[in-house]
């Protein structure tokens, strides 16, 4: 099943290409084909991840959760696109999923050899962190499109692409919901990570990155919910927060510690 990982990455990349074609041509048939391809990709990855569960103790836990994030992100989009006018988001979501899947593919090749990774506490910590990251990744895709759409509206750019992207308000509301959902998971994950660090007396540099990204999401959430902070600045910080969170993942998956 693991041999299918590159094919799975290719399918995510293919979905991105078809979504871009759908965005470019605005043909409903192309969009349907993109949804079907992404759905098939999610199913393939589901199979790959299910097959790798018995071997998690041998390493590759980061790869497992990265793949899970890509699947979660794509699945979330495929569910929400039925309810919200966010079809134009497809290429951004599948591009992010491709990125996560590429990370997963390389993490597989460089299995983490740290024996503490098989510890149950750490597994829960990483699992929760990835649920959070998945939600943040979804918010990031929305924020990226928000920035594009807001820029086009400000600059009064040609209307074709602008018309095909989702409305600003929908993007903003869903991005906030992603952070609202992801933040508690990420918070608990961080607490468990801290407990693990104290227990093993092993403080990784990635914890600092994780705390900074948590603070960023905390600030975005607090400012949005209390001061009504929204729009461009919130979108930029949401994207920055995910970059840091992925930095943490990269440290787990690719850097020997």
């Amino acid at each position: 099943m693991q041999a299918l990982v590159p094919a799975g990455v290719g399918l995510f990349a293919g979905s991105t290409a078809v979504y871009l074609a759908a965005l470019w041509t605005s043909r409903p048939g192309v969009l349907r084909a993109a949804h079907v391809l992404l759905g098939l990709t999610v199913l393939l990855w589901g199979g790959i991840l299910a097959a790798s569960v018995p071997h998690l103790a041998e390493g590759g836990i980061t790869r497992f959760y990265l793949g899970g994030s890509a699947v979660g992100l794509s699945g979330l989009y495929l569910i929400l696109v039925r309810r919200y006018p966010i079809a134009g988001l497809g290429s951004f979501v599948s591009a992010l999923a491709t990125l996560l899947a590429v990370f997963a593919m390389f993490a597989q090749r460089q299995n983490v050899t740290d024996p503490t990774l098989v510890d149950w506490l750490l597994r829960i910590h990483i699992g929760l962190a990835f649920v959070g990251v998945t939600a943040f990744a979804f918010s990031t895709a929305l924020s990226m499109v928000y920035l594009m759409q807001a820029r086009m509206l400000k600059q009064k750019a040609k209307s074709e692409l602008r018309r095909r992207l989702p409305p600003l308000d929908v993007l903003d509301r869903l991005a906030l919901r992603g952070i609202v959902v992801g933040f508690p998971f990420y918070t608990v994950a961080l607490l468990l990570g801290s407990a693990q660090a104290i227990r093993t007396d092993h403080l990784r540099s990635s914890y600092v990155l994780a705390i900074v990204s948590w603070v960023i999401y905390g600030v975005v959430l607090q400012a949005r919910l209390t001061a009504g902070w929204r729009g461009r600045r919130a979108a930029i910080l949401t994207i920055f927060g995910l970059v840091l969170a992925l930095g943490v993942v990269a440290q787990y998956g690719f850097v020997s510690v």
Binding site: S26, P85, L153, S159, R162, R163, L168, D169, V170
Partner: peptide, 20 residues
């Protein structure tokens, strides 16, 4: 028939792109 061609309907379209 996808795009609006009067000033009023363009304004309504833009409003929809901002507020849904």
């Amino acid at each position: 028939g996808r795009s609006s061609v009067s000033v009023s309907s363009v304004a309504a379209d833009l409003a929809r792109q901002i507020f849904g």
